[in-house]
Design a binder for these strands. Sequence first.
DNA 1: GAGTGGTCTAGACCACTGA
DNA 2: CAGTGGTCTAGACCACTCG
Lengths: 257, 257
Amino acid sequence: MSTLNSASPAAVMTSADVATPAFSPLYQQIKTLMTMRLQAGEWRPGEAIPSELGLAARFKVSQGTVRKAVDALAADNLLVRRQGKGTFVSTHAEQTVQYRFLRLMPNDGPVVGAQRRFIDCRRLRAPADVARSLGLKSGDAVINVRRVLSFESAPTVLDDIWLPGALFKGLTAERLADYKGPMYGLFESEFGVRMIRAEEQIRAVSADSLSANLLGLGVGAPLLSVERLSMTYGDKAVELRRGLYSTASHYYRNELN
Amino acid sequence: MSTLNSASPAAVMTSADVATPAFSPLYQQIKTLMTMRLQAGEWRPGEAIPSELGLAARFKVSQGTVRKAVDALAADNLLVRRQGKGTFVSTHAEQTVQYRFLRLMPNDGPVVGAQRRFIDCRRLRAPADVARSLGLKSGDAVINVRRVLSFESAPTVLDDIWLPGALFKGLTAERLADYKGPMYGLFESEFGVRMIRAEEQIRAVSADSLSANLLGLGVGAPLLSVERLSMTYGDKAVELRRGLYSTASHYYRNELN
DNA sequence: GAGTGGTCTAGACCACTGA
DNA sequence: CAGTGGTCTAGACCACTCG
């Protein structure tokens, strides 16, 4: 580790260095360094990172210390460990299990793939509330995508998606429609934007005429309103997604610990 | 560790023992042993468990191995580590932060305490669906509690709670009303039932006349339906809670990783 | 068999708490 | 100050994957 100490690896930063330096353990510092390499694209989604012993040599610490850092990154879903093979940068592209953040489950019957229908994809100026959520200035360029997800031909999810225009130049309805696989896979491979975590605000609302129409329901039908803010590295918000879910034959599943 | 090996601690179970013995690492076995001690009430909620070195001596393993076991139990929220003080059995009683599993947040303004009003607490025979969820036989004794939670005098949550009668003998409306603190604290201290984790199914529904009345809304108003199944040790279901949340001035908050 | 992650140990030292 | 959890090391060996 060349970041903080001078001689031996054990000579870490201590509380004598500064007044209240907020002591940070070595493995935490290495986690930060590795996160920066991931963010910089030095290690690409789907690829293997160096072995633990290799990383230990590079950072001049013991294997146990890089192990703690890698464990933490794996817990954050940034890396995936595979015994006997190596440690890999996680990716949305080979996402076998549904749509990463979508928690909808059928009331009965097996989980089944969704059909997507894109309603429109427009480039426009950010409304005040969208700008605030995404950390933009009101009037900045944003891209607005609307689409419907159907399960077994039953329209179920109406998504209203807002993306910073600066990050997603050239995103069109065609590219969305042509891309096979989850939308986050497209964002990752084509625009270098990786979703790390998200926060959702869930409410119950009544369908207005537009959404009722698109979801094949009556006006006033109860819908789940799911407002999701997705973050990339550094907890930077990069997507605001307002979803309306029909919960007649599906439910939102959550686990509490 | 006297459970599996004979001589040295390092002589753990190997894949040579049986055909496909599903190799379980030492720290995992110790985690299981500690969980059993917790379940048996040998270490009580709020109390400190032995120090890591003490546990290491007792189980005849190294400190590092018990550390992994304790880390896992702390990750499951069964234990709480406090540097310099010790490791404690977590408890619902001194739960400073709201109601453990309740994810409701005010749209704006600070989090504020709730007022509780108990509507009734009856002992009756389990309906088929309740019995199925709780792993009982249809017709077994259950306790049904209904109550309303209000925030700043606005009724917001209508809970319909089902508990196995065998586990909660003597639970009455009086004891519920008299108990200060969260309901799960009462369950823990008076009935020895600790909620470990829960699963929720969330839907949007329309208020019927009864729930509309109790929540001060119009009939047909959209409500969040939250059906929660809570589990104790061994993933045994011990509470079915059907909640109706008014999401006019609150939202259900969820974090996705 | 070589290379990877996974487990376990023994021992040193650090940070935090409370008497 | 003693006692607790937290970090870090060095080294051994095990389990898994793949050529």
